Amino acid sequence: MALKSTVYKVELQLSDMDRNYYAAHSLTLARHPSETDERMMVRLLAFALNASENLVFAKGLSDIEEPDIWHKDYTGAIQQWIEVGQPDERRLLKACGRAEQVLVYSYASNSAIWWQGLGNRLERAKNLTVWNVPVATSQALEKMAQRNMQLQCTIQDGQLWLTDDTNTVQVDLVSLKQPFSY
């Protein structure tokens, strides 16, 4: 018998002062059986950093044709393709061909090694942005994981704070690649 996803409910109060985006999101996260709490919380972080009306969790680990999160416009065109972890070169180049913007949020202790081996080969991907979530941060986020979460997220001057009843985690992302601008 196949293992089923574990469902997490999240009430996310978001104040993104950098983008003037203020909203409450009621989210349902299905944690794939092979996914850790750490990865799931980084997915939630990626959602918070890019939140919009049309941003949704995709099938991700369950379907190789979909990212973890995406934003499609009303015509079905993919505006944002968001990956969590360390996707391979082929997957990222394919995503760059399909979406207007591709974002990656890596988070493991070996992220620097992953990017060192991949970075030069992805220079031609002009619409790719790669961020690294420091290990201490992703592990602090993992400790916040609960089946029912009420979280407050504040984003200001490029910094993010995620707060629950008892914890606050400050997130300072490390830029590994920014998109090419003309």
Rank of each mutant, 00 (worst) to 15 (best):
K177N: 11
A140I: 08
H32L: 00
T6Q: 12
W114A: 14
K72W: 02
M1N: 14
Y21E: 07
Y107I: 09
A2C: 08
E53W: 12
G117A: 06
Y182W: 10
Q13H: 00
K126G: 02
I82D: 07
A58H: 14
E100L: 14
T6Y: 06
R147D: 12
E65V: 11
I78S: 02
K59A: 07
L176D: 04
K4G: 03
E65P: 00
M41N: 13
E35Q: 11
I155R: 09
R31F: 05
M149F: 08
A95K: 13
T129C: 13
D68W: 11
K126N: 07
H71F: 06
K143V: 08
A99F: 08
Q178A: 15
D165K: 12
A24C: 02
D37T: 12
Q146R: 14
P87A: 08
S34C: 12
S111P: 03
L49K: 00
A30V: 05
W115Y: 02
A112R: 12
F47A: 12
E83F: 15
L92N: 10
A30I: 03
K59E: 15
A140H: 09
V56M: 04
A95H: 03
Q116E: 14
L27V: 02
S26Y: 14
E100S: 10
M41P: 03
R121V: 01
L122M: 06
Y21C: 07
D37F: 02
P87W: 13
D172S: 13
D88V: 09
T28V: 15
P33Y: 05
T163R: 13
Q79N: 11
L61Q: 14
Q146Y: 10
L14D: 08
E65H: 13
A145P: 00
C153K: 07
F180T: 15
Q159E: 10
S109V: 05
Q178F: 06
M144S: 07
I78R: 07
I78G: 11
A51N: 03
L93F: 07
T166K: 15
A99Y: 10
Q139G: 04
R124P: 12
P179W: 12
D18L: 01
E65Q: 10
K72R: 15
T28M: 14
Y22T: 00
L103H: 08
L49R: 04
S175A: 11
L162V: 10
W70D: 04
S138R: 02
L103C: 11
D63Q: 10
S62T: 01
V10T: 05
D63G: 05
G158P: 04
E53T: 06
Q150I: 06
T28Y: 01
Y74V: 15
A51K: 02
V7W: 11
T28S: 12
W115S: 06
